[in-house]
Design a protein around this nucleic acid. Sequence first.
DNA 1: CAACTAATTAGATGTTTATCTAATTTGATG
DNA 2: CATCAAATTAGATAAACATCTAATTAGTTG
Lengths: 197, 197
Amino acid sequence: MQLEKIVNYHKALADPTRLRILLLLSEGEMNGQALAEKLNISQPTVTHHAAKLREAALITERREKNTVYFAQNRYFIQQHAEASLKFIFKEGGKEMSEPENAQTKSAVIRNFFAKDGRLRQIPAQYKKKLIALEHLVEQLEPGRKYSEKEINEFIKQFHEDFATIRREFIMHQFMYREDGIYELNPREQWTHWENVK
Amino acid sequence: MQLEKIVNYHKALADPTRLRILLLLSEGEMNGQALAEKLNISQPTVTHHAAKLREAALITERREKNTVYFAQNRYFIQQHAEASLKFIFKEGGKEMSEPENAQTKSAVIRNFFAKDGRLRQIPAQYKKKLIALEHLVEQLEPGRKYSEKEINEFIKQFHEDFATIRREFIMHQFMYREDGIYELNPREQWTHWENVK
DNA sequence: CAACTAATTAGATGTTTATCTAATTTGATG
DNA sequence: CATCAAATTAGATAAACATCTAATTAGTTG
């Protein structure tokens, strides 16, 4: 449900300790112990808050040996802030209808992809960008594990800026990365399916 | 303290009932009883939540006879959302130095405004947008009250999308609106002066 | 002022949650 | 496999909070 998500976003930010964690992370990633020390709290407390922040998708984690590095997920922080305002101001009611949606989709693909299938440019507008990204990931094999090099090669077929696009794949949850291995996420996790449902 | 304010903002929004109140108010003002009925909660509960929302300046109240009408305070809701993101992303620390600032400013004006004074396009980048907006509002008379129509006419001299720009004027605290009457805010309230101080 | 209506305050109750210490798990490394 | 380091889980405690009913206040109107 829409409402619940927004509540959780604000709950996540409605605590001074968590805000201070995010503030520290604005300078770069940090591991649990470092946070505990900086904030003068116990490690379990950090774990507790990290869990809340993770649930709301406000941070990302990266495991190296046995230490976990936390980082801001700027993208989702911003995304949720926006969604929240839209909700309160009720600018969410007037969504595209399904057919209109499908129409937009093919229009975007026509406009942004060349005949040979290459992506002319990355759309700046949010929804269009998602459509373009989706069009790309649909050409990956579900379940297959890709190395970073393979992903780069794949993207380069369509666009020279593979680094940006690879990052967007992760950011919008089209793919999941662990230890340099990339894998397609199930469709239900793709970012804009949230919007549509 | 900065932190505390932001926490309170998110606490205010971190409750489903309060969000639903705001949602109802997005359609216009409402009194306590009506809210209680719509939401299926007791009147004291409404009072309780109204107090929280009022503390965070997210609603305004108007008393008529013995009934109190609540309304969204869209302006502050947006303002706090913005402040919150700025805080988390720490866009308060690394400011431009004054001379650099002045230089950037005239460069932005040169680039975004045509010879005849019209705004070619609204800058997408945050700081540049602020500079452009400031340049516009500087041409309004301090202390004078403008009707919405007058504001629209004023903006149309510079750019066709008066609705967006009018909204930005409010959003960034260049102007204050009440009952359709617009007035310039004192310079100290303009958004980016916060950053500079 | 009596009666009415809407709102607020008081006080009670149950739930959520931030934090701690102690115990356990995870992963790496001698 | 024993040890070490970092993180997590379990469990306890205290504070914060959402909600209710009952009592009170504020304001209006016959």
